[in-house]
Design a protein around this nucleic acid. Structure first.
Lengths: 191, 191
DNA sequence: GTCTATATAATGATAGAC
DNA sequence: GTCTATCATTATATAGAC
């Protein structure tokens, strides 16, 4: 924080708003006019911060989301304490991240966007890949064989993503809560 | 079929191509130029068939998808024979419909589209709702209590949708196949 | 029923003043 | 670092000939 100025927006502040916009509207659905309105910045200001335009914006958002997952989910998962506690912490953070199933997932939203640069598409897909890998590693650390750990980790992310979509489609957040609980029990089965 | 003409496209032929386009690109991602190219029809021809423009096109696609689910999944589910056979048929059709996890789901793609008319959004969400209801009804018919039947039916759709997204994000169709198998076992548990 | 040509609006992106 | 004004392009949609 080397004096980020007071009257100007920091890149991080902007990226957080872009994150919200892209997760709700997808890439093509988030027009520059929407972005301008959401951030309170004019077009030229946006290009000052992101000379590469929307492509650079969405790449920054993908990096931000990946960093958030890393810090708030993956790192705690690799930390100390009983496995059940770490899994519980992950599911709590997951619940909050998607606001109990009301907020869409950036990955799911950007998977629909045909105009997304391959670079950003890769960043987005890497988020789920790393999540599964970190989860599998935690299970392995608790003595679960590698193949079974990977199976369970994948099933958990499947439950989270499916639960989120169905909860949103049916406007029933209980679906998401149930999916998280199912994931917990499958992850911790026999431990 | 009252002489649908030979040199012209039938509405059904067009809608099938629109279905493919919208499921892959979403609503805002499917530009009229894309639609023109995919169907082989000029702009004016498209507006001849769909005077309401893209809004009417996507509404027709939602109706088409709902009808396909009705005929190929819901009806067999309500038919004769052992429950396991009907569930098996559903999962087989589901697998084919999403090409073993390679083809995206129209519902998931259109859930991202902010410009979708509320009318069409409702049609799309109704697809998953009806699917869950039909599945729950089949389970109830086999003696499973209503609340448990609904829980299982919802979990199955969660597995299908989550499995599809994760399979596509990780380019691993085995994830989808496993999700279908998980759904089968949960649906038929104890029967 | 399909076409060519065009109208109109919105898009992503720049230039240059402050 | 933000603005106003404008660019070129693409978008959806229409008019009218065939």
């Amino acid at each position: 924080m080397t004096a980020a100025a007071k009257t100007s927006h920091s890149r991080d502040e902007i990226v957080r708003k872009l994150f919200d916009l892209f997760r709700h509207r997808g890439f093509e659905g988030a027009a520059l006019s929407d972005i301008s309105e959401a951030t309170g910045l004019g077009r030229s200001s946006l290009y000052y911060h992101f000379p590469g335009g929307k492509d650079e914006m969405v790449a920054a958002v993908a990096d931000f989301a990946h960093g958030q997952i890393e810090a708030n989910i993956l790192a705690p998962l690799a930390g100390e304490g009983p496995l059940a506690d770490r899994i519980g912490a992950m599911l709590e953070t997951t619940r909050d991240m998607y606001d109990c199933g009301r907020e869409p997932c950036l990955v799911a939203s950007l998977m629909v966007s045909p105009g997304l640069a391959p670079d950003s598409a890769g960043k987005v897909q890497a988020i789920l890949r790393d999540w599964i890998a970190a989860l599998a590693a935690a299970l392995e650390g608790a003595g679960i064989p590698a193949s079974e750990a990977h199976r369970r980790a994948t099933a958990a992310i499947v439950a989270i993503q499916g639960g989120l979509l169905v909860a949103r489609a049916s406007a029933d957040s209980a679906v998401f809560a149930n999916a998280l609980e199912t994931a917990r029990q499958d992850l911790l089965a026999g431990t």
